[in-house]
Amino acid sequence: MRQKHVLLGISGSISAYKAADIANELTKRGYAVDVLMTQSSTKFITPLTLQSLTKRMVHTDVMQERIPESINHIELAKAADLFLMAPATANVIGKLANGIADDIVTTVAIALKSEVPKLIAPAMNTYMYQNPIVEKNLATLKNIGYKEIKPREALLACGDFGRGALATVEEIIKQAEAALATKE
């Protein structure tokens, strides 16, 4: 049986450091994990950390073609059994909902086959999460096949208390494995 392939997208949220635990746990469970990072996410966690945990190259630049015979973002999308965006900022949610493909994360996401399960785990300030624009963008994503892993209510990094904290690593892994199981 072929190893399942997970694309883990990381955007620039303070909770990006939790992506290391997500990548590590998925790798330990036998999945091939390719990490896709926005430039802002690299300010919170380094690609080297994620490369060390997954034992795979981390992708940070849509224009970096490591193998001249192939187009990186297309090959990554073709290999995917699951696309998991964790954490997902309001910015990346808006880009995905509106078809903006201007970095490695959004470009690969746009190139995914429609049958690939897509999970998105928002992480942001409560007021951002409750903003009608973000709510509309999440509804758009749901309408095109994305499943939201709801954020938790907690004390946020900014000091506010409310819904917006990244779901627990355990919940994200549980939903990722459920999505992978449905693809079999």
Rank of each mutant, 00 (worst) to 15 (best):
G99Y: 09
M85V: 15
P117C: 06
T38H: 00
A86M: 02
Y31D: 01
M124W: 07
A123F: 04
S40P: 00
K18D: 09
Q64K: 15
G94A: 04
A80G: 12
L82I: 02
N98P: 11
E115T: 11
Q64M: 13
E69M: 07
M37H: 03
P122V: 06
A80I: 09
P117N: 11
P117S: 04
V35R: 06
L112W: 14
Q39P: 01
D34K: 06
A23H: 07
I45N: 02
A16D: 03
P47I: 00
Q130N: 15
F44P: 04
M57V: 10
R56C: 01
N98E: 10
E65P: 04
L53D: 00
Y129A: 03
K55T: 13
D34N: 15
V108A: 07
T107V: 06
A79Q: 15
A20T: 04
Q64R: 15
A23F: 09
I120C: 13
N72T: 15
E65V: 09
N91V: 01
I71G: 07
K43P: 02
I110F: 07
A19D: 06
S41V: 03
S15A: 15
Y129T: 01
D34E: 13
M37T: 00
E75A: 11
A19T: 01
Q64N: 15
R29I: 06
E25N: 12
A20L: 04
T42S: 15
P117V: 06
I71V: 15
T46C: 02
A16F: 04
K43D: 14
A101N: 05
V58M: 04
L50E: 07
P117Q: 10
N24D: 14
D34P: 03
Y17I: 14
A16W: 06
P87K: 01
R56K: 15
T60F: 01
P122I: 02
P87E: 05
L48Q: 12
G99E: 10
I110M: 14
E75L: 05
M57I: 09
M85Q: 12
L36S: 03
V116F: 05
I67S: 10
A19Q: 10
I120T: 14
I104C: 05
H59E: 09
S41H: 02
A80Q: 08
K18A: 04
Q51A: 12
S15D: 15
R66D: 05
Y127E: 13
P68G: 11
A97R: 06
D81I: 04
N72G: 10
H73I: 07
K95P: 07
V116M: 09
D103S: 02
T126K: 11
M85E: 08
L84I: 03
K55E: 11
S15N: 13
L84R: 02
N125G: 08
I67A: 08
P47S: 11
A123R: 01
K55R: 14
T60V: 14
L26D: 00
